[in-house]
């Protein structure tokens, strides 16, 4: 296990309640009859194929998804009525890295939530930005341009922007996509640390083995919720096959569920005339 447990969500104190949510964009349904409760201190990973509604579910919590039925309550308030105070880290691929902006300026953008129409950043906000950068270990980079940093440091900038307004919930859209193993591990350790400090973390990921398997709670999604629970219960062949709409064999090794990529039939094993079983997977391993 890469990251220490236990996390301690308070199950009597839901911060996000999604009740029979049906929603999408321009009349096109993306999510149907979704029910999900997320408690204070939870650390949830949303997994599912591309287009399954992971980002849309985050947008529903942020109050920007068109809701056709049901409702989303954040801290007891309907997200479509009042924009919730939630930190958001977008996919880093969507950021314009050539934009002339320093690390400090990006972090201070996060203070906007507290006073969106006040024209300038106050001294107090400047101090909290400095504190947050210190907390996330990027204060030495404050004056650097955003493109001069490594993948892990870039992710920390946007985490700092998401948290600088004292948000207790942070949503991350594929925070580990496109980064190397070391950076991915750094990011996950940081998120676990923040979670231990009481921040509720909800993230989407495509990396089942390296990320989702190490989270305390995983939600499988494909337009609707297929399964919700700890990875040991959720990451099974049946559930993942249903989620992804194709065979997803899972083996268990040292108490960890591992999704195995099926060897394709165009490479080495096809030439040798071997089938899947003889290529290394045995029936008794698959759960």
């Amino acid at each position: 296990m890469l990251h220490p447990l236990p996390h301690s969500p308070s199950y009597i104190d839901p911060v996000v309640s999604i009740e029979s949510l049906t929603g999408g964009y321009n009349g096109e349904l993306v999510l149907e009859s979704v029910d999900l409760t997320i408690s204070h201190g939870d650390f949830v990973g949303l997994v599912g194929p591309s287009g399954s509604g992971k980002t849309s579910l985050l947008k529903a919590i942020l109050g920007t998804l068109d809701v056709y039925d049901g409702r989303v309550l954040v801290n007891g308030v309907d997200a479509s009525v009042r924009r919730p105070r939630v930190g958001y880290v977008p996919q880093l691929e969507t950021i314009d890295w050539n934009f002339p902006v320093t690390v400090e300026e990006v972090v201070m953008m996060g203070c906007t939530m507290n006073s969106p129409l006040f024209p300038w950043v106050t001294g107090l906000q400047r101090k909290s930005a400095a504190r947050m950068m210190e907390h996330l270990g990027i204060s030495a980079l404050a004056k650097r341009h955003i493109s001069d940093l490594s993948g892990g440091q870039q992710q920390r900038i946007f985490l700092a922007r998401a948290l600088v307004g004292n948000q207790a919930i942070v949503l991350l859209d594929e925070p580990t996509s496109g980064v190397d193993i070391k950076t991915r591990d750094d990011i996950m350790h940081l998120l676990h640390e923040l979670n231990h400090q009481g921040i509720t973390v909800i993230m989407t990921t495509h990396e089942i083995n390296s990320v989702a398997a190490h989270l305390p709670r995983v939600v499988c999604l494909n337009g609707r919720i297929i399964a919700d629970g700890p990875p040991s219960k959720v990451l099974t062949t049946e559930i993942l096959t249903e989620t992804y709409g194709g065979p997803m064999p899972v083996i268990h090794h040292n108490g960890m569920a591992i999704v195995v990529e099926r060897p394709h039939r165009f490479g080495y094993h096809a030439r040798k005339g071997e089938d899947q079983d003889s290529a290394g997977l045995e029936h008794q391993d698959i759960v």
Binding site: V101, M113, P116
Partner: peptide
């Protein structure tokens, strides 16, 4: 630009997240 500097910067850099943070 002097008065709306913060809003212009956020909108030009990341308008989608800016909207979430209350920037018009």
């Amino acid at each position: 630009i002097f008065v709306g500097y913060k809003l212009f910067l956020f909108t030009a850099f990341d308008s989608e997240v800016g909207r979430l943070y209350g920037v018009p």
